[in-house]
Computed example of a mutant assay.
Amino acid sequence: MPDPAPSASRQEQKERTRQSILSSALELSLKQGFAQVSLRQVSRHAGIVPTAFYRHFESMDQLGLALVEESFSTLRQMVRDAQRDPEVFENIIDAAADVLVETVKQRKTHFGFVSRERMGGPDVVRTAIRHELDLFVSELAVVLARLPNIEDWSSDDVQMVSRLFVRNMVTNAEEVVEMPDGRPDLEERIKEGARRQMRLIVVGFKDWRS
């Protein structure tokens, strides 16, 4: 029976190179924005020749789309975990503020990428970010539809309030991205601001009629 190890090793090396390209593009885009980063710069930073880049991505646009996908994967997992965890659901406002800040701190480069590129990136990247935010609104709406006083709302209204929460989330995430390391005072201020903003949205639930 042939030894599968060489094939597995090649696949691992390919994945490492792919991740190196993604990490290099993220790091370079921190300094100058993704639109200004060239394929040659990414290849040089990743320690590969430009022709090797094309074994992983067809173009810089495709690389940008992969970065968007990678950046939003954490957010999607965050919503799915919230649906499965009764404690998070019962204390959704306090838990959401804590989870958001911790998630952004762990993936600062990815959230920084989204923050910069959603307004100033290439068209294909901006469009992909808008699409991912719309998907996130839809996934969050499924969670919110289970909250008290909202069960009988129309789907359009649930989507509307979900979009308000997502806009709040994006604003607070951007504040966390800009927050210097080692500033628990600023971190707590962001969390408390997020809680107050979400409570303000929720106050209107009881009296709203679709």
Rank of each mutant, 00 (worst) to 15 (best):
N168D: 11
L26V: 00
I201A: 05
Q77F: 01
H56F: 09
V124K: 14
V49E: 08
F89I: 04
V177N: 00
F34R: 02
D123V: 09
R116E: 09
Q77K: 06
H110Q: 15
H110W: 10
V49T: 12
V176K: 08
A97E: 05
Q32E: 10
G204P: 01
L39K: 08
D85E: 15
L26D: 02
F113R: 00
D185Q: 07
Q106W: 08
E192A: 03
P6G: 07
R195N: 03
L200I: 06
A8L: 15
F136R: 03
V170Q: 11
Q36P: 02
S138V: 02
A173D: 03
R118N: 05
S38V: 12
S154W: 02
S59C: 07
Q41S: 09
E139Q: 10
G33T: 03
Q19V: 03
S154L: 10
S24F: 00
W153G: 01
E187G: 05
D3R: 09
L39M: 14
D156A: 14
P6M: 07
G121S: 10
S115H: 06
I129S: 01
A5Q: 15
I93Y: 12
R199S: 04
F205Y: 15
E178I: 06
L186N: 01
S24L: 01
A95L: 07
K191F: 00
D81N: 06
R40C: 08
W208C: 09
A8M: 12
A5T: 15
T127D: 13
V158M: 13
S38L: 11
K14E: 14
R126M: 09
R167V: 05
T109F: 04
R130Q: 07
T109A: 11
R146H: 10
R10D: 12
G204N: 12
S7D: 12
A5N: 14
L144E: 00
A66Y: 01
A66I: 06
E15S: 08
L164H: 10
V161M: 11
V104H: 02
S7I: 14
I48K: 00
S9H: 10
S155T: 14
S71G: 09
S29L: 02
H56R: 03
F89E: 04
D123C: 09
M78F: 00
L30P: 00
A82F: 12
V161Q: 02
I48Y: 08
M198T: 06
A46D: 04
I92P: 00
I93D: 03
A66W: 03
N172M: 14
S73F: 06
S9Y: 12
Q106I: 03
R167H: 13
G120L: 11
V143E: 01
